[in-house]
């Protein structure tokens, strides 16, 4: 479980996060939603420790990140997997080598065992075997996302972060990636936090949803509650598309 308490983040004169508090539970798909520029990426990067916060607590099962030294943060990060918006696969390594990389860096096992583990992760994300030796640039965007998921789960992390996992993907592939993240979250009982502005994703896999608006937590609830929320900014965000306007009408 990850708990965020009274977090503030300021860049120069820009107060990006204002007293944000939230709890992200294990074994559930937690989603941070909000319009572009609302502060959700800053919140995610602050939770991971890529941004230093001005004030507040970020607790990973009771361990407060801002109090940690760099060596302790590095140890904690070995329990973290992350799926980046652009996949962030290493260009110079093949698909299999990308997944083996965290194992080679931190696992105390033989090369054969590492390879077995990497292959099992790639199979888990349904990646065809012929692509294992290809470079990341030789596979599609959807396949790159699968490789990134396989790499993120290679060390069996306790916490999984996904930054806009569906960005640049077609609706069908987006659905597959969403379902894969959801399945893996349950399978490994991970605390998963997804940063998204894709309402289809929210409706598909969102269990706990946090809405960030102008750097503040404006709403928190489930996907069932989102259509009945009494929050003007959230309604503007959710019902921006015609599809969800129709869903709302149908619900009424």
């Amino acid at each position: 479980m990850i708990t965020v308490k009274n977090v503030d983040k300021i860049f120069g004169d820009n107060h990006v996060l204002k007293n944000v508090s939230a709890t992200f539970e294990a074994g559930r798909t937690n989603m941070i939603i909000g319009a572009s520029g609302s502060g959700k990426t800053v919140l995610m990067k602050s939770i991971i420790g890529l941004h230093r916060i001005e004030h507040g607590r970020i607790e990973y099962d009771g361990r407060n990140l801002p109090d940690m030294r760099m060596s302790e943060i590095r140890r904690l990060r070995r329990e973290v997997g992350m799926l980046f918006q652009g996949s962030a696969l290493f260009d110079s390594l093949s698909v299999l080598e990308n997944v083996m990389y965290p194992l080679e860096m931190f696992a105390e096992t033989t090369k054969e065992e590492m390879k077995e583990r990497a292959v099992s992760c790639l199979r888990r994300v349904n990646l065809p075997e012929h692509s294992y030796k290809l470079a990341p640039s030789e596979i599609s965007g959807g396949m790159q996302k699968r490789v990134a998921i396989a790499r993120a789960i290679a060390l069996q992390p306790k916490y999984l972060f996904c930054d806009e996992p569906n960005s640049g993907l077609d609706p069908k592939t987006s659905l597959i990636i969403d379902q894969l993240i959801n399945e893996i979250t349950r399978e490994f009982n991970m605390t998963t936090i997804i940063n998204s502005h894709d309402m289809n994703s929210v409706m598909e896999i969102g269990e706990k949803i946090i809405f960030i608006n102008k750097g503040e937590k404006a709403w928190e609830g489930t996907k069932e509650e989102i259509f009945h929320a009494d929050n003007e900014d959230l309604n503007d965000f959710v019902f921006a598309s015609e599809l969800y306007k129709k869903v709302k009408k149908a619900n009424q």
Binding site: L50, A88, D91, Y101, F106
Partner: peptide, 18 residues
């Protein structure tokens, strides 16, 4: 620089790599 802007360096940091 390319590794930085394509978030590959962030990926290394998040894995706990120096």
């Amino acid at each position: 620089g390319t590794m930085r802007i394509t978030e590959q360096i962030d990926a290394l940091e998040i894995m706990g790599v120096n």
